[in-house]
């Protein structure tokens, strides 16, 4: 528990106005989308925390907003921290964290592909899994699986017929 208190204090020293919450079994903090890069950079560089590994980067569509979760880990002291941010307004945009963690490159591509969040400053932002001409972003709640698949197949049937 000492560890937990110490951890909280260090976090408070970096972000005075932050409240520590829980996400699954991990500590979580929430940052504003505009200040996400600056905040993460502090967490990456702060000598006591040194979150040097971005284990996972994912998003959850909460209908009213899209929540982006950065799962950070420190290989020095074993801390785990989840940094959340909420994107409310379209177009969804965030600053890329590739300069801090190289693992972000693929993660951000996947999120761009699945949620349509564009990351400014990403070296090679393209659709990772879906075809380039795919419409819509599959993991959003507004995405209707049946319509989109049918439309895509129809348009390609048309293309095939034209070629013949």
């Amino acid at each position: 528990m000492m560890q937990q208190n110490g951890f909280e204090q260090i976090l408070k020293s970096i972000f005075p106005e932050i409240t520590l919450s829980k996400c699954a079994q991990f500590n979580a903090i929430e940052l504003k989308p505009e200040s996400i890069y600056a905040g993460l950079e502090k967490l990456h560089q702060q000598s006591d925390l040194k979150f040097d590994m971005l284990v996972c980067l994912t998003a959850v569509d909460r209908v009213t907003h899209i929540e982006v979760l950065y799962h950070l880990r420190s290989t020095f002291n074993g801390y785990d921290l989840i940094v959340k941010t909420a994107l409310v307004e379209q177009p969804y945009e965030l600053q890329s964290v590739v300069p801090l963690w190289r693992s972000a490159e693929l993660f951000e591509m996947e999120i761009y592909d699945m949620f349509g969040i564009s990351f400014s400053g990403h070296p090679d932002l393209r659709r990772l899994f879906m075809p380039d001409d795919w419409e819509g972003f599959p993991l959003r709640k507004s995405y209707k699986t049946t319509d989109v698949a049918d439309n895509y197949l129809d348009s390609h049937k048309l293309l095939l017929n034209q070629q013949e």
């Binding site: 284990v55 996972c56 994912t58 959850v60 569509d61 799962h71 190289r102 693992s103 490159e105 693929l106 996947e110 993991l139």
Partner: peptide, 18 residues
């Protein structure tokens, strides 16, 4: 509501290029 799999190969693939 949402399931995310953080798969090992996805991250390990990134190591291929360097």
């Amino acid at each position: 509501y949402r399931v995310k799999f953080r798969t090992p190969n996805f991250s390990n693939l990134a190591a291929l290029k360097p």
